[in-house]
């Protein structure tokens, strides 16, 4: 399986993401610059964290109009897995691939620490390797992770089981402790915590690795013909 890590000016978790895929997961991965005009050759798209375009105007607001985002939308429509972490999640929200928006953290502080997440849905291509209700430890690092959506959207998210991760202890004021959501089709996931920073016990947790393993497993089941 071949992954693309999209790099915007101001991305800073791209190298962690690349390392997670190449060295810990053992799959193919390439950096892809934000002005790239085709993602045809990639099987999975990763939008890393950071401060794309300096977070000017709103987090993700400017990155969402970069050339490559047209291709990310196309990949999403084609059913390819698209994962947005932290700033990547914010870009997915701004682009409308996921519903809702981010507000400043309730405390106004930048929060950088490991948090416990609850797996609310393990029937997705991103979470198949987790147990339902399992608690996993993944670090967060953000100033704007206070998820918000209106009542109707929240009802839809719940009805379709689109809330994939919640915080055990809410660090940022996020609505209903939401840490990560998926689109209705089930192939676009956005989350504030950083699974790519939890891929080896040396980093304090390897709980994030299962997310990437889930993606690969689902992809192999669909694409690799058994001999």
């Amino acid at each position: 399986m071949k992954f693309a890590v999209i790099v915007f000016p101001g991305s800073n978790c791209d190298i962690d993401m690349y390392h997670a895929i190449k060295d810990e997961l053992g799959e193919e991965v390439e950096y892809v610059w934000h002005d790239t005009e085709s993602l045809e050759e990639y099987d999975g798209i990763l939008l890393p964290g950071g401060f794309s375009y300096g977070d000017y105007l709103r987090s993700g607001a400017i990155a969402r109009f970069s050339r490559v985002m047209q291709e990310v939308v196309k990949a999403a429509n084609d059913g390819k897995p698209v994962l947005g972490v932290c700033n990547g999640f914010q870009i997915l929200l701004e682009s409308g691939l996921l519903p809702g928006a981010m507000r400043r953290n309730e405390s106004l502080s930048f929060i950088c620490k490991p948090v416990q997440l609850k797996v609310e849905n393990n029937q997705t291509m991103f979470t198949g390797e987790y147990e339902l209700g399992q608690t996993i430890t993944i670090p967060v690092a953000h100033g704007e992770g206070n998820y918000y959506c209106d009542k109707d959207t929240l009802a839809r998210l719940k009805a379709n089981n689109q809330i994939v991760f919640t915080y055990e202890q809410n660090p940022n004021g996020s609505l209903e402790n939401i840490a990560g959501i998926i689109n209705e089709k089930g192939n676009v996931l956005g989350m504030m915590p950083h699974p790519e920073r939890a891929v080896d016990e040396l980093l304090g947790s390897a709980d994030g690795l299962k997310m990437f393993q889930s993606i690969v497993k689902t992809w192999r089941e669909a694409h690799v013909v058994k001999a």
């Binding site: 607001a61 109009f65 929200l93 928006a101 918000y148 959506c149």
Partner: peptide
């Protein structure tokens, strides 16, 4: 399109 995010 850009200057405001109608969600919030």
């Amino acid at each position: 399109k850009l200057l405001a995010n109608p969600v919030i």
